[in-house]
Design a binder for these strands. Sequence first.
DNA 1: TAAGATTGAAATGTCAATCTTA
DNA 2: TAAGATTGACATTTCAATCTTA
Lengths: 154, 154
Amino acid sequence: VTGLRAVFDDLVRFETVLWGEIDARLRRECGVPLGSLNVMMVIDSTPGCRVYDIAQALAITVGGTSQAVDRLEAAGRCVRRANPADRRSSIVKLTVAGKALLGTAVVVFDDELDRLIRAPLSATALGHLGAALHTVRHSATTAAPQDVEQAHLE
Amino acid sequence: VTGLRAVFDDLVRFETVLWGEIDARLRRECGVPLGSLNVMMVIDSTPGCRVYDIAQALAITVGGTSQAVDRLEAAGRCVRRANPADRRSSIVKLTVAGKALLGTAVVVFDDELDRLIRAPLSATALGHLGAALHTVRHSATTAAPQDVEQAHLE
DNA sequence: TAAGATTGAAATGTCAATCTTA
DNA sequence: TAAGATTGACATTTCAATCTTA
């Protein structure tokens, strides 16, 4: 039981440090925050990407995603286009400038992942880490968030 | 290389979901956010706890920690006492009400850790996860944050 | 009625400047 | 000068309310 608290602590504190260091280097060398880069990576790899798709991929709220896209758009890195299939939503696309920035930023991103995650671990330890994280993430995002109150099952 | 991005993604998204679900249940059932509970746990387990000690333990800034202690103090859950050993700092202590809240909240906290981290994994997978997270955290917090510019080596 | 999205207010974190004491 | 802490300005996220279209 007490061991689980240590796992939680290492997980959360490492994520904080990892995010902070990558974010600082991306701002310094590329002029883009890590949060924006993550949004751009989802847009780039999702055909016909909607705000909703970004929110799902990043596990954040739709409202927060809408504002993140606002910031990207204001910086000239993406645009919203009419969605011919559903007029409630837009299709989000990277601009040419956005794609260029993405190309240079992912180099820094990958370099930091190598330094902070791969380098300290053996190949097998890295494999175990990846597998375990995939399992718990899948479990947490699949299973009902909680039994808040049986929802409305009629 | 591309595998590292998947590890980063699972790590960050799982942390987001994990934090969000524990936080929501703590607010609902105990009236305390997870961030505040984490601060209280550090105070409770650190003799002569200063603001600086909390910041180190949680891997957040001293400024942010000072504000977090402000909120806890305003809620009557901790107090700042004069530090006889150093008049620049204070000793932070939990109040009686703070200790009582901590006692009930950790039960919920541990229950959520069990549900979201332990349950989906085998005992050996959990062991591997804990070991790997400990390694990367230690590596990231020990090694120089980066070679920002050789610092000032004279 | 529900789904996709937007908006404004509140919470919480970072950063830089400042203050007091070592 | 440096260490511990505080403060205010700013950034980013969640939540709730609202709007438009399926």
